[in-house]
């Protein structure tokens, strides 16, 4: 059965070696701050917090996606890597649009499921991130011989929308995303 897979023996990363956010500082409410002050600043705090979506958070959103071939996560297979996620903040003070760029590393350069994995990551981020984020999912250069083709498909909103009308693809993607919280 494993013979049907493009990569029957992928390298698996030990879960304890996967990147995660260091434990936050004790976040118990400051006993000296008054309740009024905190409520007055809460709105701007919210605004600030919304901007605080960082690479680690994007990583957390996609690393738990299951590989369509193996019962393993994209994080443990090294398909999604923290270092290959970048966020470009708005380019002008007036613009509110940020761009998330995710570079994926397929387990083998001939992985036929590369497009599906990319689609799963794209759909996950489109669903999970606020609409002010543009999501660019690409295959890391030199890791797949179909990278250009896959990149173009994943970059075309009409193609992605059409793919998500295809029942087979929807089922595969839903299975992949089922392991996300």
């Amino acid at each position: 059965m494993d013979a049907d897979k493009d990569n029957a023996n992928p390298t698996i990363i030990n879960p304890s070696d996967l990147p995660s956010r260091p434990p936050a500082y004790p976040s118990l409410a400051d006993p000296f701050s008054s309740a009024e002050a905190s409520s007055a600043s809460s709105e701007s705090d919210d605004e600030e917090r919304r901007e605080e979506i960082d690479e680690q958070e994007v990583y957390d959103l996609i690393s738990t996606i299951s590989d369509p071939e193996h019962p393993l996560s994209l994080g443990s297979l090294g398909v999604a890597k923290l270092d290959d996620i970048s966020i470009q903040r708005p380019t002008s003070p007036r613009s509110r649009i940020s761009t998330v760029t995710v570079l994926l590393t397929p387990t083998t350069s001939a992985c036929s499921l590369t497009t599906v994995i990319g689609l799963g990551v794209k759909v996950r981020l489109l669903q999970a991130l606020p609409p002010r984020f543009r999501v660019d999912v690409r295959i890391k250069e030199g890791t797949s011989n179909t990278a250009d083709e896959v990149n173009k498909q994943l970059g075309d909103k009409e193609r992605v929308a059409a793919a998500m009308e295809n029942r087979n693809l929807i089922n595969v993607v839903n299975t992949m995303l089922a392991t996300c919280e």
Binding site: S92, S95, R96, P131, R134
Partner: peptide, 9 residues
């Protein structure tokens, strides 16, 4: 005009 349709395309 920037953000012509809020943050959407």
């Amino acid at each position: 005009v920037e953000n012509a349709h809020d943050v959407f395309e």
